[in-house]
């Protein structure tokens, strides 16, 4: 390595990002070059110096402004709940999205778009979870009085897909109970909502668990949707489709620890 290459690789070298050969070549150059050795020492000092750069977090007023701007427009539930949701769940997001994209797309695609927008809202949110998960038995009762149906969810989370918590969101024109699962570094959102009156795609989904599930991709996210009884389910994430089907399989197999299953 010459001086030029050495300088370029100093930082990567210290971070252990070089191949063994490159690292050896870098060390060899440093042993014989006073200028580069000094530069390396100075660069280490620079890292320390830069760590003293003050953090500039977003001011609260800005957060509030963005929150009110991108929050969904409809907030008709009781005020105290509204406040909780305003502070927490609706977050900063790509919210009014559905209305923007509705006209251009197939009607059932609008549901996919909405699911992804709602998922983005969860991802962008400062507080995606309104009720922390101490287990499904804490999350499900929390929805009582917040949504006008009992969200029937068969899967309580496990090591692969831990349940992080829940929140209330809007899905199209109605309220949705939102369950947030993790999978490695990915966030997976399950929306549960009343199924009636929505532009569901024709019944030709693929079998997952005991359901027929519609699988769609949108903007890099996978969306799995199905109906069970009166309820609709939309599962969204950027995790692999295989992992998402795995979770859908657990969710869409009623009778494993939830309310009595209803036949579609």
């Amino acid at each position: 390595m010459d001086c030029m290459e050495t300088r370029t690789n100093l930082l990567a070298g210290r971070r252990g990002l070089l191949s063994p050969q490159e690292a050896a070549s870098l060390q060899e150059h440093l042993r014989g070059c006073e200028l580069c050795t000094r530069a390396d020492a100075a660069d280490i000092e620079l890292s320390r110096t830069l760590s003293r750069l003050p953090r500039r977090d977003a001011p609260q007023a800005l957060k509030r402004r963005l929150e009110s701007r991108w929050a969904p427009r409809e907030r008709r539930w009781p005020r105290r709940v509204g406040q909780v949701v305003a502070v927490a769940g609706v977050g900063l997001a790509v919210a009014a999205g559905a209305t923007l994209f509705l006209g251009a797309r197939e009607r059932s695609d609008a549901m996919v778009t909405e699911a992804v927008n709602d998922h983005l809202r969860v991802l962008y949110s400062e507080h995606p979870v309104e009720v922390e998960s101490g287990g499904i038995h804490q999350v499900k009762p929390w929805f009582a009085g917040r949504v006008d149906f009992a969200p029937s969810v068969a899967f309580a989370g496990d090591q692969d897909f831990p349940l992080k918590g829940g929140s209330v969101a809007y899905f199209m024109d109605r309220k949705a109970a939102t369950f947030i699962y993790g999978h490695r570094l990915h966030t997976i959102t399950l929306f549960v909502f009343r199924a009636d009156g929505l532009p569901w795609p024709p019944a030709d989904g693929e079998p997952v668990g005991s359901q027929r599930v519609y699988v769609r991709d949108d903007r890099g996210f996978h969306v799995l949707m199905w109906r069970h009884g009166d309820l609709g389910y939309a599962l969204v994430s950027d995790t692999s489709p295989t992992d998402l089907r795995e979770l859908a399989g657990r969710l869409a197999t009623p009778g494993t620890g939830s309310e009595s299953p209803r036949t579609p």
Binding site: L62, R69, L92, V94, G97, T113, R219, G220, D238
Partner: peptide
């Protein structure tokens, strides 16, 4: 900085349909 963050959110919102597969959010 505040303007930029607001503008970025507005654009992210509008551009959501073009968010490409595999892109890091």
């Amino acid at each position: 900085a505040e303007d930029l963050v607001q503008e970025a959110y507005a654009r992210a919102f509008r551009a959501a349909p073009t968010f490409a597969w595999g892109t890091n959010l």
